[in-house]
Design a binder for these strands. Structure first.
Length: 294
DNA sequence: AATTAAACCTGATCGC
DNA sequence: TGCGATCAGGTTTAAT
């Protein structure tokens, strides 16, 4: 599922592939995806048609398109959504990839519910099996006041995200460390996959309370966040589920992931531990019971 | 106010 | 083989 590294990969791709292009038209078979946009899908279409994509950037797990008229498109891919660039034809209300042998013919890339026609005849598609993704447009003033924008915490890969800042954020929020790490209003971009691998790297039990963390432990988590996220960006994300890059290609982090979805496997530190899975706030948490003591 | 559960969704998997 | 139940989980919304 798209977290910081996956969203960054998509954003980097889009700046190469669609920056400078104009949105010619838009299609959807799922207008509900636009319910956060003023006027729904019709309002969205009217607002962005004919606008040029000036720049694409990332805000937490959100993808932001800066448009020529000052408006901005915000896309959150949620769990199974991912943006693809290519060419398709509509047949019986289903999109068929023009390249019959390419990656875009794979099932996971075929759940297309939103399509943008671009000025160079390429297309931008949102494939989203479970239809959780969100698409909206906002003008400059409204954009700043969006909940998605207002409540987003600092980005852990920005150079100004230093240990002092991190310590401040974590210690002022009481609760279970894994939950706090995934709270987008505290730090943005970390989801379930990377939270598990970060805590394993830092040798911290996911249920540990933030108020019980010492300076050394906090430092270890801080370093692990930077290390794991940077590595995952380099490997273009994790594709254990539906995530793909804009070509439809899998990311490489899943192959080297440390604990996420490795229940029952031996701990990579060769400590003799077997990776355990528990539920924290009704989602899975994976950890090594030997390396990560409470 | 703060915490928790349900809702949004559907393909894959499991038990019978 | 097939059917129903369960699970996956980011975020919003409803309920406690």
């Amino acid at each position: 599922m798209p977290e910081l590294p996956e969203v960054q990969t998509i954003v980097d791709d889009l700046n190469k592939k669609v920056k400078g292009l104009t949105i010619a038209d838009i299609w959807t078979d799922w207008p509900k995806q636009f319910k956060r946009s003023p006027g729904g899908f019709d309002g969205f279409k009217k607002a962005v048609k004919g606008e040029k994509i000036m720049k694409v950037w990332r805000l937490g797990k959100n993808i932001i398109f800066d448009l020529s008229g000052g408006k901005k498109i915000l896309i959150h891919q949620k769990m199974t959504g991912h943006l693809l660039v290519g060419r398709w034809q509509l047949k019986n209300n289903n999109w068929v990839a023009s390249d019959k042998k390419g990656l875009l013919t794979e099932k996971v890339n075929g759940y297309i519910h939103v399509m943008f026609w671009l000025s160079n005849k390429n297309m931008l598609a949102l494939s989203d099996l479970r239809k959780f993704a969100k698409v909206l447009v906002a003008n400059e003033r409204d954009f700043k006041n969006l909940e998605d924008v207002k409540n987003i915490g600092p980005d852990p890969l920005k150079p100004d995200f230093d240990f002092k800042k991190f310590k401040n954020l974590i210690t002022k929020k009481r609760g279970v460390i894994k939950k706090v790490l995934m709270d987008q209003s505290i730090i943005s971009g970390i989801g379930n996959i990377y939270a598990d691998d970060i805590l394993f790297t830092a040798k911290i039990h996911p249920l540990k309370k933030t108020e019980s963390l010492g300076e050394k432990e906090l430092k270890a988590i801080f370093e692990a966040i930077k290390k794991i996220l940077k590595k995952a960006v380099k490997l273009r994300g994790t594709s254990t589920s539906d995530y793909r890059d804009t070509s439809g290609k899998k990311g490489g982090y899943g192959e080297v992931r440390l604990v996420y979805q490795r229940e029952g496997e031996k701990c990579s530190r060769k400590c003799g531990g077997i990776i355990k899975r528990i539920k924290i706030n009704s989602r899975s948490a994976h950890f090594c019971p030997i390396c990560q003591k409470i």
